[in-house]
């Protein structure tokens, strides 16, 4: 029973963010439906079936709230009536705010350094690797996730061992990709394991971050040599060039 309860809590945690807008929408649909029913039968000009808003959830929500404000004490012209409407408006805004998280802010965004929306350090790193590997059509590379996600959007010549990783579906990665990803999750990755897996995956380059990782032994002891250091990012290249 306890396990079932725990499972239910996990499912709830997984789904609650997803269901927030859905609940808001269902409430809005119900509100539209009730308002349509309570309207004067002769005045059916503004009636819209709430079912059509399945096509556009947020239009439905915005419409429901606006309609509620419009219909609430619509014959009231006094200041008290206007105030009640303003309060209702704030309550609706509060409902929307509580249903989601603020997008504009530091939680989900940070200021860009350039028009490419990738940090200048990473651009310098990618430019270095592209220049260093001139002549080869594809550059196989192992890098931590935050760098790996920028590689292919920057140049199609990059072929990272993994990019954005879904932690629940690590099995989608190659065997080498899984090994490297798991090692890069620690602050002290076993660089021998990383180097062996990278060689197995055919990587000519490995990128690490010396501000994030503090390995016991550097990659230079396991078949790779340090070719560049850009800010905190280190570029290691396979000794002797290609795999």
């Amino acid at each position: 029973m306890k396990e079932l309860l725990n499972d239910l809590i996990v499912i709830y945690d997984d789904c609650k963010s997803f269901f927030k807008p859905l609940v808001l929408f269902l409430v809005s649909v119900l509100a539209i439906s009730l308002m349509n029913d309570s309207e004067n039968k002769d005045d059916n000009g503004s009636r819209v079936s709430p079912a059509v808003f399945v096509l556009s959830f947020f239009t439905g929500i915005a419409y429901a709230f606006s309609l509620a404000i419009k219909n609430y004490k619509k014959d009231e012209k006094r200041l008290s009536g206007i105030l009640v409407r303003v309060v209702a408006c704030f309550l609706f805004i509060e409902a929307i705010i509580l249903s989601g998280e603020r997008v504009i802010g530091n939680d989900h965004f940070y200021r860009t350094e350039n028009a490419l929306h990738i940090s200048t350090e990473k651009i310098a790193l990618m430019d270095f690797i592209l220049k260093d590997s001139e002549g080869s059509s594809v550059v196989r590379i192992a890098a931590p996730e935050e760098i790996a996600v920028c590689l292919r959007p920057y140049s199609s010549r990059f072929d990272p061992v993994f990019e954005q990783v879904d932690i629940d579906h690590l099995d989608k990665l190659t065997k080498e990709g899984q090994i490297i990803y798991e090692e890069f999750m620690y602050n002290d990755p076993d660089m021998k394991t990383v180097a062996d897996a990278a060689m197995e995956a055919g990587c000519t380059y490995i990128v690490t971050d010396n501000e994030k990782y503090y390995p016991e032994f550097k990659l230079s002891e396991f078949g790779y040599e340090l070719v560049s250091c850009i800010g905190s990012l280190e570029v290691y290249k396979l000794k002797g060039g290609d795999v």
Binding site: K20, I61, A62, I69, S99
Partner: peptide, 22 residues
């Protein structure tokens, strides 16, 4: 009232982060 609807729509976007999946 149209502008009010637009205001609600704006607010939904500004406070509209629900989950990575959506």
């Amino acid at each position: 009232i149209r502008l009010l609807m637009m205001l609600f729509f704006n607010i939904i976007q500004i406070w509209g982060f629900f989950d990575e999946k959506v």
